[in-house]
Computed example of a mutant assay.
Amino acid sequence: MHFGSLVAALASFLDARRRGGEWLVRIEDLDPPRTVAGAADRQLATLEALGLRWDGPVLYQSTRTAAYAAALDALIARGLVYPCGCSRKEIAAHGLAGLEGPRYPGTCRDGLPPGRAPRAWRFATRPGPIDFVDRIQGPRHQDLANAIGDFVVRRADGIHAYQLAVVVDDAWQGITNVVRGADLIDSTPRQIALQQALGLSTPTYAHVPLVVDGAGRKLSKSDAAQPVDPRDPLPALLRAWAFLGQAPLEPRPASAAELLERAVAGWDIARVPRRPRRLGPLAGESSPSARAR
């Protein structure tokens, strides 16, 4: 677990506890080729060492394939998705400008061209805005069709896309409040569109600012992305608390358990900053004492 992940985990943990809710942990291991053996166990062990203990069993998305397939079948039955035979290379060459790079030009929207075999399944977006109010970032507006276009819900390799899986799991787990990193805020309109298409409720969202390095790069993509040390959790928790803009805990907590108890009582999501922030030392420190990702 790196520092950016700790910031999101701590914010969601404190928000759930402050509101009297449950804090659930999900392992999003949809993509077997990218899954590192033992990584999830190490992350869970780090959470426990930090005192961030979850409610109920951990949900592994790799066990939920049948649920995602059923949701896709429902979308197919309603005519809301379509098979696509285009390759990434073709989309890169002919795609339109979009928020996250080339936007799908709709080649297969009205049916597969002659000689094409289906590869992926795409959700057919509709013109018009999708609006939501983020508890940290404020009002958000996105014309999904123009910003993102028809997006993939099942990949060419048969793996269900994150956007579909997370919507299905949020509904199945009864999620009412999502607190996560701001790198996912542009995914939220896609998830809302899928929730509406499947007749599912929409949670409230709160996106915490990203941790960036000195060059403004997301910390997880930076050379500064070192793991949090679970053997000495207090410095990392103090730094994450300060990063989230919360009032200083005076006197300094003597342990991680004391910090979390006082932090739950003092948590104020209105203090969380909106913009990405650099990782800096705590007051009185010349350099970070907790390694960070």
Rank of each mutant, 00 (worst) to 15 (best):
H141W: 14
Q142G: 14
Q142V: 14
Q142S: 14
A145W: 15
A145C: 12
A147F: 09
D150S: 10
F151V: 10
V153L: 06
V153K: 07
A156Y: 15
D157Q: 00
G158C: 12
I159R: 03
H160T: 09
H160R: 11
A161D: 09
Q163G: 10
A165P: 13
A165T: 10
A165Q: 08
V166A: 10
V167Y: 07
V168S: 13
V168Q: 14
V168N: 13
D169Y: 10
D170L: 10
A171S: 14
A171H: 15
W172D: 14
G174C: 12
G174V: 13
I175W: 03
I175E: 03
I175L: 03
T176S: 12
N177H: 11
V178D: 03
V178A: 02
R180L: 04
R180Q: 06
R180K: 06
G181Q: 07
A182T: 02
D183K: 01
D186I: 01
S187D: 09
T188N: 08
P189F: 10
P189Y: 11
R190H: 15
Q191S: 12
I192T: 08
I192A: 07
I192Y: 12
A193W: 15
Q196F: 05
A197N: 14
G199H: 12
T202K: 03
T202M: 01
V208Y: 01
V208W: 01
P209G: 01
L210A: 04
L210E: 01
V212C: 00
V212H: 05
V212D: 03
V212E: 01
V212K: 00
D213V: 05
G214H: 13
G214N: 13
A215L: 13
R217V: 08
L219S: 03
L219I: 04
S220V: 04
S220G: 09
K221T: 13
K221A: 13
S222V: 01
A224H: 04
Q226T: 13
Q226N: 12
V228N: 11
P230T: 13
